[in-house]
């Protein structure tokens, strides 16, 4: 399900890009050494092992509460989209209301028809009035995707949203998200090199308190799961990570 990268006509270079720069401190100690993360339209991965601070970096970028502190500057978007590992479904709201939740939290009048269209776009038409408990894990993450799309955010932050899914559902969700977020600036936090290589044109490795660029895979995203180059590069990247660990 390869789809071409679409860049908004005037987004590159003209506008100051979203990003984060400086140092991240946790309890007065350096969590991430001085860095500059400047985001381009399209997908950027933050790849690193658990505890490396990648989620912290993402939370700071999104302006979310967190224990660490940024000494530096942040350029966030007016509207931010957020997807986490947990689908964050509110059990008492219907699927449709869950899609509109961010709008209602923001105090905007949600457009029901748009919410329905988005549910259809993620393959869930007809389930609008169900409760989230009646849905499978994969379906719930689709609702979360529709909810994220609903606010029409310029900057999308993804905190391992696919890592709790089974492998087949994960690949489907990756493709779906890639299609739906086309043209936006997306930051994906992941510990899975294959996921980063498959989806992201820019990859940052986070290890040993350092944020450094890693070589992405050339070619059209998302890569086919059976792409030999994807498999080989994934294996090489894993080796690198294991060696330095």
């Amino acid at each position: 399900m390869a789809s071409p990268m679409i860049y908004p006509a005037n987004s590159v270079a003209e506008v100051d890009p979203y990003g984060l720069s400086g140092t991240i401190l946790l309890d007065g100690e350096t969590l991430i050494a001085p860095f500059t993360l400047s985001l381009q339209a399209g997908w950027t991965a933050l790849l690193g092992p658990s505890g490396s601070g990648k989620s912290t970096l993402l939370r700071l970028l999104g302006g979310l509460d967190c224990e660490a502190e940024l000494k530096g500057t942040r350029r966030g978007a007016e509207r931010i989209g957020w997807m986490a590992q947990s689908d964050l479904m509110q059990p008492r709201l219907s699927v449709l209301q869950n899609v509109m939740l961010i709008e209602m939290l923001a105090g905007r009048k949600p457009d029901r028809n748009r919410a329905r269209d988005l549910l259809a776009a993620v393959g869930l038409s007809g389930l609008e009035s169900r409760k989230p408990s009646a849905l499978s894990g994969g379906q719930r993450q689709r609702v979360a995707l529709a909810r994220t799309l609903m606010s029409d955010a310029e900057l999308i932050l993804l905190d391992e949203p696919f890592s709790a899914l089974d492998p087949a559902t994960r690949a489907t969700m990756q493709d779906l998200a890639f299609d739906q977020f086309a043209g936006r600036t997306v930051v994906l936090v992941t510990h899975d090199p294959a996921e980063a290589l498959r989806l992201c044109q820019t990859i940052w490795g986070l290890e040993d308190h350092q944020l450094q660029p890693l070589e992405p895979l050339a070619g059209t995203k998302p890569h086919d799961l059976a792409d030999p180059a994807l498999l080989a590069t994934t294996a090489r990247l894993l080796d690198d990570i294991r060696e330095s660990a």
């Binding site: 989209g81 964050l88 961010i102 939290l105």
Partner: peptide
Amino acid sequence: DMARIAKA
């Protein structure tokens, strides 16, 4: 987090 994201 969703409330923070939505500036609720």
